[in-house]
Design a protein around this nucleic acid. Structure first.
Lengths: 166, 166
DNA sequence: CTTATCTTTCAGAAATAATTGAAAGTTTAG
DNA sequence: CTAAACTTTCAATTATTTCTGAAAGATAAG
């Protein structure tokens, strides 16, 4: 398999994975493209490579910057803006975990918390509270573990994962 | 807040969370509804509660059964089929982890593996292989940790999470 | 200031996903 | 067997998300 072919396949696979986890396909693809690109790319180059429109490229590049997954690189003497993605996978995973936690887990935790305030002492209400409380506790634990991961040093994950598997 | 209201809000929140993680909103809502229902429900009752069509209800109930999140309950003397969801949250999370791993992580691991076979020894190819290998290794670690979680006893997660946080 | 280069915006178009509802299929009771 | 009760299927519709491309907005060079 040729390099160009492998890259294309990687970009494709990454886009599919992203979209099955609720992330826009193009956004994942641009991210993948920048991860495997040896040098920063301009919007134009990204458009050409992925065969997408200017608007689409611009919008998703900005989303990736919002997620702190892509950085703008200003090349001296160049008018255009160039973009690059971090290639340290653990760092990338950490960043994604951080953002999804903030955007999706934190809000639901608040809802769970507020639902514990439901009135009533009958069995059905108690059962409901129990489920909600367990769900909240579980989510808290996941959060805490993610927090640890997010704040940890670069090798923590590998070391810990090995420990957990033993 | 009244119980019925709290349940409705929970169902709504769960649906939203699901859809931002790539799971059909109705599927998540039916799951939530069954989790907080004290007794098994028929398709008819689910349709009424969530104001959805028969076809939609049927399709998503079946999807939930595919995911092993919902079980058919045959009530003696009743013609209708009734459905119930497991209420042990750790068990539910484990089941979801198991299915998503199988459906989405395993396939991408295969792709990663095949991409390592790319030809060439130039710098760009070496860099590509490095990224792909790291990504594969990382995904493997996540997989292994999930496996451990999936196969573990009911309290493993809580105990381990506490340990990791210390 | 004017022009050329580049970026952003956004309304409409296209693509994708979810939903409906009626018809067909099944199962069980009588 | 026949009819009633229930479930499944699926073509058509509706809703949602994504994408396009042209126009407007910046920015810097000349």
């Amino acid at each position: 398999m040729k390099l160009a072919e492998a890259k294309a396949e990687f970009i494709q696979a990454w886009g599919t994975l992203g979209s099955s986890w609720g992330i826009n396909r193009t956004m994942s693809q641009i991210h993948a493209l920048l991860i495997v690109s040896p040098k920063p790319m301009s919007a134009e180059e990204i458009m050409d490579e992925l065969k997408i429109s200017r608007g689409n490229a611009n919008m998703n590049i900005r989303a990736l910057m919002d997620w702190n997954l892509v950085k703008k690189q200003l090349i001296p003497g160049e008018r255009k803006e160039y973009f690059s993605a971090g290639k340290d996978i653990v760092e990338v995973a950490r960043q994604i975990a951080k953002e999804r936690k903030r955007r999706e887990i934190d809000p639901i935790l608040e809802v769970m918390e507020s639902l514990k305030k439901v009135e009533g002492t009958d069995q059905e209400t108690e059962d409901f509270k129990k489920v909600i409380t367990e769900l909240g506790d579980f989510t808290q634990k996941v959060e805490s573990t993610l927090d640890k991961f997010i704040r940890s040093d670069k090798n923590w994950f590998y070391k810990t994962a090995i420990k957990l598997m033993s």
